[in-house]
Design a binder for these strands. Sequence first.
RNA 1: GGAGAGAUGGCCGAGUAGGUCGAAGGCGGUCGCCUGCUAAGCGAUUAUACGAGCUAAAACUCGUAUCCAGGGUUCGAAUCCCUGUCUCUCCGCCA
Length: 422
Amino acid sequence: MLDLKFVRNNPEVVKTALQKRRSSISLDPFLELDERRREKLVKVEKLKNKRNVVSEEIGRLKKVGQLAENLVLEMRQVSDEIKNLDEEIRVLDQQLQRVLLAIPNIPDDSVPEGIDESDNIELRRWGEPRQFDFDPKPHWDIGETLDILDFERGGKVTGARFTFYKGAGAALERAVFNFMLDVHTREHGYIEIIPPFMVNSNSMIGTGQLPKFAEDMFKVENTDYYLIPTAEVPVTNLYNNEILNGDKLPIYHCAFSACFRAEAGAAGRDTRGLIRQHQFNKVELVKFVRPEDSFAELEQLTLNAEKVLQLLELPYRVVTLSTGDLGFSSAKTYDLEVWLPSYNNYKEISSCSNFLDFQARRANIRYREGKVKPRFVHTLNGSGLAVGRTVAAILENYQTDTGTVKIPAVLHPYMGGIKEIN
RNA sequence: GGAGAGAUGGCCGAGUAGGUCGAAGGCGGUCGCCUGCUAAGCGAUUAUACGAGCUAAAACUCGUAUCCAGGGUUCGAAUCCCUGUCUCUCCGCCA
């Protein structure tokens, strides 16, 4: 959420940002609401002041045994007026809040302007896509042939876009996220978290999934709980409504979780394999940092995620998302895209974003340093990495002409010494 | 699921026959004094949000709100009533 005062004082800046994002939101209702609200506020506060002063006076009079009927009667009227005004303000507040929560973050100046993902800018590449001297198979074929992935029965037991991992497949999945967690905790200084896989609606508002994107999530019936679409939600909200001690910053967390996405509107896209599931595992990186450091922290975070791909020796590239492809809460995002032979292309496997104080303001996460007023922290997060897509990339990139799959060297210790799935 | 107790400032903890309580006291923090050093001691200060005024912006001044949340009673509520949430204890159930 943007700062109310900032929007009030810089409407042109916000309007320009909305245009860059190709957003259709209009700011005018907001400005008008804001003005009306302040008008009423001044009025009601004057009345409240009067009530406070006179009530005190009544107390004093009663103490010395005097009646103050006329004052009481007058105040009864004033209180009624206050009640009405308060109600009007409450409604205005609500409307204002609704508009404010629907305004996306302002893209950073370094973000390329564009309409959609085709305007994303490639920053760098790592590794060379392997040249196959046979016809490489997609991972869903490999998985079924080796009997390590069962899409059929996933569909039977639950529904489309749910999968069973089996035998070496399950072991590989587990090896991959254990490896990722070890890299980030031991080499990159992240503190590990295992969060709740459900959160309440307040937390969903805090990170920006609600109120706009309710249809993308699974809600638990008869409760206020949602299945998390990413560990970003519980982990970022870990410190909501708190004032952190400045000497605790920066805070780095990495978290393993299952992620649940309704994938509304994704019908027909990535229908086969592990790429787009309703449930998948992910290791997430989350940072809470001082505002002045956040862009440097974004670079570092991205490198931390890249490191995993490098260690697994999977070719990838890094792209900067254009304003048209940028997520709602993000001011700047780098996507890591891994090489997938079945797509004959690079496919997103991590998304690393700087949210500035956008989430911190929604979730009310502040820090205090010295005697100055508390400030909002900046939050960042990135996948480090999506586990299912990593497994898919390993199966495809490490397949052999005999139909087996070699295990990347760094995973051998995590696979009990198994070097090849056959 | 049943019964009971509780929720006050960064922390601990007063405050229930409603009235000057944003809230005693302690701890912690900050600044200053004192001190050969350390420790101790002395003094002061120490919540947040919103709005108005003044500002280039702050600072500042004033106002309003906030004693878990939301309603209610009342001229006036941390204090009374209702609802909800959470925590703790006991019982039941359970991985």
